[in-house]
Protein backbone atom coordinates (compact mmCIF):
# COMPACT_ATOMS: atom_id res chain seq x y z
CA UNK A 1 0.00 0.00 0.00
CA UNK A 2 3.02 2.32 0.45
CA UNK A 3 5.36 3.66 -2.24
CA UNK A 4 8.94 2.41 -2.40
CA UNK A 5 10.09 5.81 -1.12
CA UNK A 6 7.86 5.57 1.95
CA UNK A 7 9.11 2.07 2.68
CA UNK A 8 12.70 3.24 2.29
CA UNK A 9 12.31 6.13 4.74
CA UNK A 10 10.31 3.97 7.13
CA UNK A 11 12.81 1.10 7.12
CA UNK A 12 15.91 3.34 7.20
CA UNK A 13 14.77 6.56 8.79
CA UNK A 14 17.23 9.48 8.58
CA UNK A 15 17.95 11.85 11.47
CA UNK A 16 16.39 9.82 14.26
CA UNK A 17 17.26 10.86 17.78
CA UNK A 18 17.19 13.34 20.62
CA UNK A 19 18.94 16.68 20.69
CA UNK A 20 19.55 17.78 24.26
CA UNK A 21 20.95 21.17 23.18
CA UNK A 22 18.30 21.90 20.56
CA UNK A 23 17.54 25.54 19.73
CA UNK A 24 13.91 24.75 19.05
CA UNK A 25 11.59 21.82 19.80
CA UNK A 26 8.19 21.13 18.29
CA UNK A 27 5.83 18.41 19.52
CA UNK A 28 2.62 17.64 17.71
CA UNK A 29 -0.02 15.11 18.67
CA UNK A 30 -2.44 13.50 16.28
CA UNK A 31 -6.04 13.86 17.44
CA UNK A 32 -7.24 11.21 14.97
CA UNK A 33 -5.23 8.26 16.18
CA UNK A 34 -3.29 9.64 19.17
CA UNK A 35 0.21 9.63 17.73
CA UNK A 36 3.06 11.97 18.51
CA UNK A 37 5.87 13.51 16.52
CA UNK A 38 8.73 15.53 17.95
CA UNK A 39 11.19 17.62 15.94
CA UNK A 40 14.39 19.22 17.26
CA UNK A 41 16.31 21.89 15.35
CA UNK A 42 19.67 23.54 15.64
CA UNK A 43 19.81 27.00 14.01
CA UNK A 44 22.80 29.03 12.85
CA UNK A 45 22.59 32.35 10.98
CA UNK A 46 18.93 31.79 10.28
CA UNK A 47 19.48 28.35 8.83
CA UNK A 48 18.58 24.87 10.09
CA UNK A 49 22.01 23.28 10.45
CA UNK A 50 20.91 20.15 12.25
CA UNK A 51 17.58 18.43 12.76
CA UNK A 52 16.40 15.29 14.56
CA UNK A 53 13.09 13.61 15.20
CA UNK A 54 11.28 11.10 17.40
CA UNK A 55 7.95 9.63 16.39
CA UNK A 56 5.33 7.39 17.96
CA UNK A 57 3.15 6.36 15.06
CA UNK A 58 2.54 4.33 11.95
CA UNK A 59 4.91 3.58 9.09
CA UNK A 60 3.73 6.65 7.18
CA UNK A 61 4.29 8.91 10.19
CA UNK A 62 7.85 7.63 10.58
CA UNK A 63 8.56 8.03 6.85
CA UNK A 64 7.11 11.56 6.92
CA UNK A 65 9.30 12.53 9.88
CA UNK A 66 12.37 11.18 8.18
CA UNK A 67 11.57 12.91 4.88
CA UNK A 68 10.74 16.26 6.44
CA UNK A 69 14.02 16.34 8.34
CA UNK A 70 15.86 15.77 5.07
CA UNK A 71 13.87 18.47 3.34
CA UNK A 72 14.39 21.04 6.10
CA UNK A 73 18.08 20.46 6.69
CA UNK A 74 20.16 23.36 5.37
CA UNK A 75 17.13 25.51 4.60
CA UNK A 76 16.58 29.01 6.01
CA UNK A 77 13.76 29.24 8.55
CA UNK A 78 11.53 31.00 6.03
CA UNK A 79 12.18 28.35 3.42
CA UNK A 80 11.50 25.60 5.93
CA UNK A 81 8.19 27.19 6.84
CA UNK A 82 6.97 26.65 3.30
CA UNK A 83 7.19 22.87 3.67
CA UNK A 84 3.61 21.60 3.64
CA UNK A 85 1.94 18.25 4.07
CA UNK A 86 1.49 18.14 0.30
CA UNK A 87 5.15 18.79 -0.47
CA UNK A 88 6.24 16.07 1.99
CA UNK A 89 3.73 13.62 0.52
CA UNK A 90 4.94 14.48 -2.98
CA UNK A 91 8.57 13.89 -2.07
CA UNK A 92 7.48 10.50 -0.68
CA UNK A 93 5.87 9.68 -4.05
CA UNK A 94 2.43 9.88 -2.52
CA UNK A 95 0.63 8.65 0.59
CA UNK A 96 -2.62 6.70 0.82
CA UNK A 97 -5.51 9.16 1.39
CA UNK A 98 -6.19 7.99 4.94
CA UNK A 99 -2.53 8.62 5.79
CA UNK A 100 -2.38 12.25 4.67
CA UNK A 101 -3.01 13.38 8.23
CA UNK A 102 0.30 11.77 9.29
CA UNK A 103 1.95 14.15 6.83
CA UNK A 104 0.16 17.03 8.51
CA UNK A 105 1.72 16.00 11.76
CA UNK A 106 5.22 16.43 10.36
CA UNK A 107 4.63 19.86 8.85
CA UNK A 108 3.01 21.07 12.08
CA UNK A 109 5.77 19.72 14.33
CA UNK A 110 8.40 21.46 12.18
CA UNK A 111 6.44 24.72 12.29
CA UNK A 112 6.23 24.47 16.08
CA UNK A 113 9.97 23.85 16.38
CA UNK A 114 10.68 26.97 14.33
CA UNK A 115 8.20 29.02 16.38
CA UNK A 116 9.82 27.72 19.55
CA UNK A 117 13.21 28.85 18.30
CA UNK A 118 11.85 32.28 17.32
CA UNK A 119 10.15 32.87 20.64
CA UNK A 120 13.35 32.05 22.49
CA UNK A 121 15.43 34.32 20.27
CA UNK A 122 13.36 37.47 20.01
Amino acid sequence: MYSAKVMDHFSNPRNVGDMPDADGVGTEGNPTCGDVMQIFIKVKDGRIVDIKFKTFGCGAAIAVSSMITEMAKGKTLDEALTISKESVANELEGLPPQKMHCSNLGADALKKAIEDYKSKNK
Binding site: V16, T27, M37, K54
Partner: peptide
Protein backbone atom coordinates in the same frame (compact mmCIF):
# COMPACT_ATOMS: atom_id res chain seq x y z
CA UNK B 1 11.51 2.17 20.37
CA UNK B 2 14.65 3.96 19.26
CA UNK B 3 12.45 6.10 17.04
CA UNK B 4 9.74 6.65 19.68
CA UNK B 5 9.75 9.74 21.91
CA UNK B 6 8.51 7.54 24.74
CA UNK B 7 10.63 5.02 26.51
CA UNK B 8 11.12 5.70 30.16
CA UNK B 9 7.40 6.02 30.59
CA UNK B 10 4.50 7.60 28.76
CA UNK B 11 5.67 11.14 29.50
CA UNK B 12 7.66 13.26 27.13
CA UNK B 13 10.51 15.20 28.61
CA UNK B 14 9.75 18.87 28.66
CA UNK B 15 6.05 18.14 28.46
Amino acid sequence: REISPYGKGWGIEGE
